[in-house]
Structures are given as structure tokens and as C-alpha cells.
Computed example of a mutant assay.
Amino acid sequence: MPPGDALATIAPDLAGRIEEALATALVAPQTATGTAADAAAAGDASGIPGGFRIVTGDRVNMRAGPGTGFEVVGQLVAGQRTEVLGAEGNWLRVRGEDGTEGWMSARYLAPLPDG
């Protein structure tokens, strides 16, 4: 059993908090002069308007709420398009191409390329 799975079995609450901390630990703060695109690139969902984003992670969990402590309701893979429905902190409420709605960490979503 991988160490991460063992921790999740022994202390699921602690494992979730560690996963959430790791998901946001490398997020750079947005400066006052930053744009929404800069915020998206840094993984900061604040100030990001609705619209569409593309999944950048290989396989990213979509959760029932804005944090790793919430149930996984689906997964999206790199290159899939999502519609942004809302934001809370570094989490975006999104709708996948199949209509599934949930929350994803903004660090795994990027603005659609121009063109």
C-alpha cells in the first residue's frame, strides 16, 4: 500500500488537509496590478470572471465543494474544456463537457488559448 493511501486509511481528515495544503502551497499571490490571466496562471481564482478554462492536469478530481475534504464527483483529463460557474478562494466551480458540475483547484485550469 502506498504511504499516501495508508495515511488516508489511518487518518482521512489529516490526509485531506495535507492534500489541500500541497495543492495550494506553491500558489503565488496575485499582485494589485495582476490580471485575471495572471491570477489563473498563478492558480488564484479570485477575480476570475466566468467563461471557459482548459484542464492542465493529467487527471484532476472534481469535488462536491471547494476543498479536498469534499467528495469526488468526477474527474477530468488534460485538454478537456470546462465552463467556470463561480469561484471561492483558489477553487473554481465548473461544469464539464458532459454536464457534471463540481469544484476544481484553479491551479489545474488555464484560460483557453487564443484563436
Rank of each mutant, 00 (worst) to 15 (best):
G43K: 03
G74K: 08
E19W: 07
E19V: 10
Q30E: 10
L14P: 00
E71S: 07
A78L: 00
A25D: 15
A28Y: 09
T24G: 02
L22N: 15
L14F: 04
A32Q: 13
A23N: 10
R81G: 00
G86Q: 03
Q80H: 11
G34W: 06
A28M: 14
P12F: 06
G96D: 15
M1E: 07
M104L: 13
G99I: 05
A32M: 09
T33I: 14
A32H: 06
D13Y: 00
E71M: 09
T82V: 15
R81N: 03
P66H: 14
R95T: 06
A64C: 03
D38H: 11
F70M: 01
T35W: 09
G51P: 08
A64N: 00
A39M: 06
R95N: 05
D44A: 13
D5Q: 14
I48P: 02
A23C: 12
P2T: 13
P113C: 00
G47R: 10
V84C: 08
I10M: 08
D58I: 11
P66F: 02
G69S: 12
M104T: 03
E83C: 03
A87Y: 01
A25Y: 10
A11N: 06
R59I: 08
G74C: 03
I48F: 07
A39P: 04
F52L: 12
M62A: 10
R63W: 06
T68Q: 08
P111V: 07
A37L: 05
V94I: 15
G102I: 14
A15Y: 01
T56I: 09
P12E: 09
V84D: 05
L7S: 01
R17S: 11
R17Y: 05
R107C: 03
G16L: 01
E19C: 12
I10S: 10
P111I: 06
I18R: 07
V60L: 14
L22C: 11
A32L: 13
T68R: 12
N61L: 11
G43V: 12
I10F: 10
G16A: 15
A110H: 11
E88D: 15
P2K: 08
E88I: 01
P3R: 12
M62R: 07
G4F: 04
R107V: 15
D114H: 01
A41Y: 06
E19P: 01
V27L: 15
L76C: 10
M1Y: 04
L7T: 00
A23K: 10
V73Y: 04
E20Y: 14
G102N: 08
T9I: 00
D5G: 11
T9W: 07
P29N: 15
A106F: 06
E19I: 06
E97H: 04
W91V: 00
E88G: 01
G74H: 03
G96Q: 10
L112P: 02
I54S: 03
V84M: 04
Q80A: 14
N90E: 04
D44M: 02
I18M: 09
G57R: 12
D38P: 04
